[in-house]
Nucleic acid binder design. Sequence first.
DNA 1: ATAAACTTTCAATAATTATTGAAAGTTTAA
DNA 2: TTAAACTTTCAATAATTATTGAAAGTTTAT
Lengths: 167, 167
Amino acid sequence: MEYKEAKEKFISTWGSLGTLWGINKAMAQIQALLFISTKPLSMEDVMEELKISRGNTSMNLRQLMDWGIVTKVLVSGERKEFFTTEKDVQELARIVAKERSRREIKPVIKVLDEVSSIKDDGSEKTKELIKQTKALRELTDDLDTLMNKLVNQKQNWLTKSVFKLMK
Amino acid sequence: MEYKEAKEKFISTWGSLGTLWGINKAMAQIQALLFISTKPLSMEDVMEELKISRGNTSMNLRQLMDWGIVTKVLVSGERKEFFTTEKDVQELARIVAKERSRREIKPVIKVLDEVSSIKDDGSEKTKELIKQTKALRELTDDLDTLMNKLVNQKQNWLTKSVFKLMK
DNA sequence: ATAAACTTTCAATAATTATTGAAAGTTTAA
DNA sequence: TTAAACTTTCAATAATTATTGAAAGTTTAT
């Protein structure tokens, strides 16, 4: 397999995996492109490489910046803006975990909390609703806490600390 | 908040959370409905409660069965089929984790493997592609392994074993 | 100040994904 | 058997989501 083919394969695979970490295809592909690029890329570069429009590129780069995954860099002597992504995979994982927790998991926990604390009128169906949403609330909360703990270990968290305990 | 409101809130919230665990809205809502139901439901019941068509219900129930989350139960004296979902949240988490690993993560690891093992032609960009896809491959693999280990502990895995180690 | 270089916005459109409903298929009771 | 009760399939349609591209906005050099 040649460089070009490998690169395309990587970008498209990572792009379609977007859903798994909760972002859309274009966003994931832009991130993938920057991730294997040896130097910051301009909007023009991204548009050309991925064959997507200026507007699309602009919007998705902005979103990636909102996530904290991509940052603008100033290239001296150049007028236009250049972009680069976090290159350390563990730092990336940390950012993604933190953002998904904040954007998606925390709000769900809040709803589960509300639902599971309705007044118990003694009926079987109310009891079941309370019991099951409570269980779900606890699971979600535990997973969220675990994820955040894992991901906050700055130094080789996965391999060094937790992982060995479980081997 | 009354039972009815709480129930609807739970179903719609859990439904929109579908993406987080990788299934579609209707699927997630059907599962949610069964999850808080005190007895198995027929297709008719599901259609009526969620206001969705027969075809949609049939297809999504099937998918839930493919995932191993929902099972048919025979209610004696009844002609039609009834459905129920796994009621234990930890078992649910285990099934979801196993399925997502198999369906999504494993295939990505395979691609990352292929891409990261292209021939190093000595160029900087090839080196970067190899380096970064290798890093991503290892991270993905570690997370996948960790997830499967966590989730295979049958007894109170979260709270009992791993969780305490990290507190 | 102004014009060139660049970025953002957003209404229109395209692409994708979910849903319907009716016909075809299957099972069961009599 | 057969016909009623039920489920599945799938082409058509609807709903949602992503993408475009051109106009409006911004910045910078002169």
